[in-house]
């Protein structure tokens, strides 16, 4: 019978010992050279836990220089990797997950009462013994914000070219195909036939892209709260780009685009629901385009219609409402243009709102990001390091 000589897990203290000379190798192997696929299928945020277990050992032996040096090289190497991969969503998401997890670990094991309420007795035994790393937490928090901003920039760069064709031009409702205002060519089909022209994207392509972002962030173990903030920011971008185009293009200010847009926004709300993201406040960012879609569809003739529009369009400014009404283009000879007196009626009713004279939305506006503390249930002493990581110079203690 095989004799088990391996130490039992209860004998480990959840620390990793390394020689000071191996610090650069650790940063290179675990941060610089690692690909997210190398650690997929292991504990999410494995690099963060390994780094923290190394910090714990340096703290345990009371070596302040070793702690400082490891944290500094960790932070600098993460920054280097992000710079090298500044257009790579996967790498940016991976390091956002790991940096914020390392930040959570420094809080969870800080020994401060406020961060210990969800800890197991074993986790409390694993708290740092000698050093207070509050200032390094601030650095990691600042770094997390930088990585978050890079993640948003990369994701926006990918979806920006898709938004107008997916939200306003592609025909996701088959029965509406070809229903365009008088005098306008079918824009999306003309784009399709133009080999040198910009590519046109369907709503399904946009939603598929959002799904890929979401899956990647989940695979990397990014906190659900942070994922929600990313999605909300991307939905803001989709709303702003769509509304701004609607406000500048007469050919899309029609009943049929209104119908299309309402359908598209409902599909996006459905995507949020299907992915448990409805609480992320992302849905609320679509309110302006939902109201614009309704404005394109409602009757615009009587005084009652004017009153209904004013009650309906609370997320649009007076300028935006008036602009859409002015641009509104009838579908056929049976539909009338919006009359000047109707628009004046609306303007009079909205006067008391004192809306800012703002027509276009700021597509670059960013919501303030928050990284709420999220302790982990993981027991450090149970963590295994796969041999494929080539970290055999780390010794479990």
């Amino acid at each position: 019978r095989q004799v088990t000589v391996q130490r039992k897990e209860k004998d480990f203290e959840g620390m990793l010992e390394y020689n000071k000379e191996d610090e650069a190798l650790l940063a290179k192997t675990l941060i610089n050279d690692i690909r997210p696929s190398t650690v997929s299928g292991t504990v999410p945020c494995l690099p963060a836990y390994i780094l923290f277990m190394c910090i714990r050992h340096a703290d345990y032996i009371n070596d302040d220089q070793k702690v400082e040096s490891l944290l500094t090289s960790t932070i600098n190497t993460i920054k280097k990797v992000l710079k090298k991969n500044n257009d790579d969503f996967e790498m940016t998401s991976f390091w956002l997950a790991n940096t914020s997890r390392l930040l959570h670990c420094l809080k969870q094991y800080s020994g401060e009462e406020g961060f210990m309420t969800h800890n197991t007795p074993k986790q409390n035994e694993h708290c740092l013994k000698n050093f207070d790393l509050t200032e390094y937490r601030q650095v990691l928090s600042d770094l997390s914000i930088q990585i978050y901003q890079q993640l948003i920039k990369v994701a926006e760069g990918i979806i920006q070219p898709m938004i107008v064709s997916a939200m306003l031009e592609s025909e996701s409702i088959p029965s509406l195909a070809g229903v365009k205002p008088m005098g306008y060519r079918n824009r999306s089909s003309s784009l399709d036939t133009d080999a040198d022209g910009p590519t046109s994207y369907t709503l399904q392509a946009l939603i598929k892209q959002l799904g890929q972002f979401h899956n990647t962030m989940q695979d990397h173990g990014l906190d659900p709260e942070i994922i929600g903030q990313v999605v909300r920011q991307l939905f803001h971008c989709i709303n702003a780009v769509t509304l701004n185009n609607l406000l500048l293009r007469k050919d899309v200010c029609s009943w049929s685009t209104g119908m299309q847009l309402r359908y598209n926004t409902s599909q996006m709300e459905e995507w949020l629901r299907a992915n448990n993201l409805y609480q992320s406040k992302a849905a609320a960012t679509l309110e302006p385009i939902i109201q614009a879609a309704q404005l394109l569809q409602v009757k615009k003739k009587t005084s009652q219609d004017a009153e209904a529009i004013c009650t309906l369009c609370t997320a649009l400014t007076t300028q935006q409402i008036v602009k859409i009404l002015n641009l509104y283009t009838p579908l056929n000879e049976f539909e009338e243009r919006v009359t000047v007196s109707f628009i004046r009626n609306i303007q009079n009713r909205l006067q008391e709102r004192n809306d800012p004279p703002q027509l276009l939305l700021d597509t670059k506006y960013t919501f303030p990001v928050l990284f709420p503390y999220s302790p982990s249930a993981l027991s450090l002493e149970t963590l295994h390091i796969p041999a494929s990581l080539n970290l055999d110079f780390l010794v479990r203690v």
Partner: peptide
């Protein structure tokens, strides 16, 4: 829970300061 003695605060440079130090180190190395 064992009574914990006060931990020593490790002073950290800011992220920008760390970057500056890192850049000057890179410049020094050939």
């Amino acid at each position: 829970r064992p009574p914990s003695r006060p931990r020593i605060l490790l002073k950290a440079p800011t992220l920008a300061e760390m970057e500056e130090m890192n850049i000057s180190e890179e410049e020094e190395s050939p």
